[in-house]
Design a protein around this nucleic acid. Structure first.
Lengths: 324, 324
DNA sequence: TTGAAAGCGTTACCAT
DNA sequence: ATGGTAACGCTTTCAA
């Protein structure tokens, strides 16, 4: 692996000069520049990023911390972050926290030790203080950590209202909600949207809301419990698609026809929601755009560019398919 | 951010000594060691990984290059690689190549410039020579690059035979195959397994094989074409689960009942195959284990440990569910 | 048992 | 316009 010294030697100049042409900084004579470029080509020289990082105290890398890449929502997010980061000249280090705050902390430490330029994180446990102390640009995605921090989220409340009203408009007379993970902001928001629509209905009671953890297994259990207490439920709004799919499975098992006897709507708009049968009616988030926006906001912050806006709440949209 | 100098200063020793206790290398007096550890704690000192990397010419990082993390197979693979790497003390940089050899090359270069210790790659275009030139440990996964290179794959041929025979045993009288991407080794192997079973059947003709690209869209088109030419097909073996799901969708659209009128089996055993309706009969690969094995083999190579074995072909298993 | 110093590959400042 | 050199934070060799 040729180093800058080799290039300097071959071109008959100092390393300082090579560095200047490399970075297009400072004065370099035309012929000198050509010499150097010649030598670079000849040696197939590529600057050593680690040495650069050491000097700059920046590694051209951003960390992405998500609970679990296996959740399709985060898969799509990760892909868009990776795409966008690559286009902007950054690498991404992937971290799965499993929502565990110890893992989060440890990743945060590792990322710092590696001089990442910035971090995109989706966390429930991280506090504003911890982020402050890090002293690295951070963008929070999907979940809000603190109003002051750069954040990219969606219209959770609105989406939930949309979903619930839609079920009403389809003739549902008793609508239940499968909640997301306790303590996660977006789960609260979606639940409150649901409540806004139905809390004054005569049939409503607290047990129309059952608790899931944004994953399939918890949803299956929650749905079973729900049907036990309320066999007459004819509409379900699940706080994400995976849980909606779980609910559909249970409905099938219990011999309830979807959408004839029970209508179900999800939230997220993951690709999966279009490939299953029946295709899922859902509140679609612009997932790719979320990741893109987050990356751009982060990079702007890293590069100290003016931030017109640091808090984005992107819009959502109801897409009707065959589960309603 | 405290540096090793700060620690040395506070402990009243030289940086060399601090380095020794940090790495547990060389002689350090008991009381000196305690002093240093004291200082480290007090300053909450964490060694700078970038500086270490520069000296060691290794960054404690491995690169993972996959075609597309959005393909559930690679999602699961990525998760297992990340888990295993983390346990062994390595970070992972994620790269999506989209099967594009230019992107692959560019990632390879970036990874090298960042002193990654090793690379796990799933590629069709990479050649043995290119890997040689890299001069970095590489493990090939899911697809074989060259016999000489460390490789983790599965029993593709056997799985295909299993799948096809199973369809026969279920009474299918005309079995078609949706092939994987042209030029990809595992697609060839799966196709040859299929051929082994049916090529001598009286009903068989080349047009019983249609071409897909391991993704949903291509499979949908391929399946339509298939039913056009062979309306009497009553069994399909798809080279992966996503394509099998696509085939099921098309069957539905055409009013063919699965599994009554047509039986379908996939390959991979992605989580998705159990959440859809009907649940998919498929050849299950040990995906998590693939990633784990690949990481372990790679790390052994990186750490110059004896490699008992460098080529693994893991077993597969047919799981019968509701699509057959 | 400990310390001084060279070196890893860059960049940026100060001279010339 | 160009070169010398300190510095980034660490590890390792050599000496003491």
């Amino acid at each position: 692996m040729a180093s800058i010294k080799d290039v300097a030697g071959l071109a008959g100049v100092s390393v300082a000069t090579v560095s200047r042409v490399l970075n297009d900084k400072g004065y370099v004579g035309q012929s000198t520049r050509e010499n150097v470029e010649q030598a670079i080509k000849q040696l197939n020289y590529k600057p050593n990023e680690v040495a650069r990082s050491l000097f700059k105290k920046k590694s051209n890398t951003i960390g992405l911390i998500v609970p679990d890449i296996m959740n399709p929502f985060f898969t799509e997010l990760a892909r868009s972050v990776e795409d966008t980061a690559t286009n902007l000249g950054y690498n991404v280090i992937l971290c799965n926290s499993d929502g565990d705050s110890e893992k989060e902390q440890s990743y945060l430490e590792v990322l710092r030790q590696n001089y990442v330029n910035g971090i995109i994180v989706s966390s429930n446990t991280l506090t504003a203080n911890q982020v402050e102390e890090l002293n690295i640009p951070v963008v929070s995605i999907d979940r809000e950590i603190s109003k002051g921090l750069p954040t990219i989220v969606v219209e959770n409340h609105k989406g939930a209202v949309l979903a619930t009203q839609f079920l009403q408009s389809k003739g549902c007379t008793k609508i239940a909600h499968i909640r997301g993970t306790d303590g996660v902001v977006n789960a609260e928001e979606r639940c409150s949207g649901y409540l806004e629509v139905v809390s004054n209905e005569p049939w409503f009671s607290d047990s129309c809301i059952v608790n899931g953890n944004f994953d399939m297994q918890s949803s299956i259990e929650a749905t079973k419990e729900l049907f036990m207490n309320h066999p007459d439920v004819d509409g379900i709004f699940a706080a994400n698609d995976i849980m909606a799919i779980g609910a559909i499975k249970v409905a099938h098992q219990l011999g309830k026809k979807v959408p004839e006897q029970i209508k179900i709507v999800g939230f997220d708009g993951i690709t999966l929601s279009t490939v299953m049968t029946p295709e899922l009616t859902t509140i679609v988030q612009p997932i790719y755009e979320l990741g893109e926006k987050a990356t751009i906001v982060l990079v702007n912050q890293m590069e100290q560019q003016p931030l017109e806006k640091t808090y984005y709440r992107l819009d959502v949209e109801l897409i009707e398919r065959n589960s309603t």
